[in-house]
């Protein structure tokens, strides 16, 4: 009986570990302004992981992992980056007209490995190169999985532009149909997802208006991408929004078959019409 209970506990712990990313801790980047005018403007960005949007109450993000991309695709120097306990921050100076991308976690995926060694369950996390270098991929009966996560937001000085949305062909990526800095209440909004560079159909998306701590209901909007990877919704409340989507599948990396998980999260603003 005791053994069964322990086994059930172990199973549920494993379940929590595997599905942990689906829990309510939400990663977000919140810029001081989404829309700006003039020749050049400073923008400050809050970066946190919290339950309520957009109130820091859990964990500050590592600001070193955040990159800012200018409308012309160049990397913008980050100023005043600071890691806080429950909220981190950075500033950047927008000097080009067009749309900037602020992003964390994009690019190289992380790898998770688990295997049995001397009767003990071992776990490992790191890059593909480190996995090779440390011989993790040669461990007996090793199970490897791949995970990538992008958290982004967009800021536009002047007229919106689309160069920063160029696809890398890797993981779950966002593409504007409606530009994320051109969202107004009561108007239909269409966003598109690519999975490994191709339209991602059947992806379930959750869209949440901010300020949920001042509402009794979270007012989650749910949508699913169509055959073209497009999902459509109409924001009714003005203010900042957060949306997230994930996809799980299988992939082959250097001849290794493995499970893969990719998620995408972004923040945008709906202005009152």
């Amino acid at each position: 009986m005791k053994r069964l209970a322990l086994r059930m506990l172990a199973a549920s712990t494993l379940f929590l570990t595997v599905t942990g990313t689906a829990s309510a801790h939400r990663a977000w980047l919140l810029p001081s302004s989404f829309t700006l005018s003039g020749d050049a403007q400073w923008v400050t960005v809050d970066a946190a992981i919290s339950n309520d949007l957009f109130f820091p109450n859990h964990h500050g993000m590592d600001p070193a992992a955040i990159t800012v991309t200018a409308p012309d695709g160049s990397t913008v120097a980050v100023e005043n980056a600071a890691k806080g306990e429950i909220r981190s921050m950075l500033d950047f100076n927008a000097t080009q007209q067009g749309t900037y991308r602020i992003a964390t976690g994009g690019g190289a995926p992380s790898y998770f490995a688990s295997w049995e060694e001397n009767g003990e369950r071992k776990r490992w996390r790191g890059s593909l190169a480190d996995m090779r270098a440390e011989g993790i991929d040669k461990k007996p009966d090793v199970e490897v999985s791949q995970s990538s996560r992008s958290v982004e937001t967009f800021v536009t000085l002047g007229a919106p532009s689309t160069e920063v949305f160029t696809s890398t062909g890797q993981g779950l990526e966002f593409q504007p149909v409606t530009h994320p800095n051109d969202v107004f209440t009561g108007e239909s909004v269409s966003f598109k997802f690519l999975l490994d560079g191709k339209p991602a159909s059947g992806i379930e998306v959750e869209i949440l208006p901010g300020n949920d701590r001042y509402r009794d209901t979270p007012s989650v909007i749910k949508a699913t991408t169509d055959a073209n990877g497009v999902f459509t919704f109409t924001p009714e409340l003005p203010g900042p929004y957060w949306f997230t989507a994930g996809s799980e599948g299988e992939t082959v990396v250097d001849g290794m078959k493995m499970k893969s998980r990719t998620s995408y999260t972004a923040t945008f603003e709906a202005l009152p019409l």
């Binding site: 829309t35 700006l36 005018s37 003039g38 020749d39 403007q41 107004f184 202005l271 009152p272 019409l273």
Partner: peptide, 12 residues
Amino acid sequence: ETWLKDLRQWWR
């Protein structure tokens, strides 16, 4: 010009 975007309908 910093505040022109606050004329939000005209700005858009």
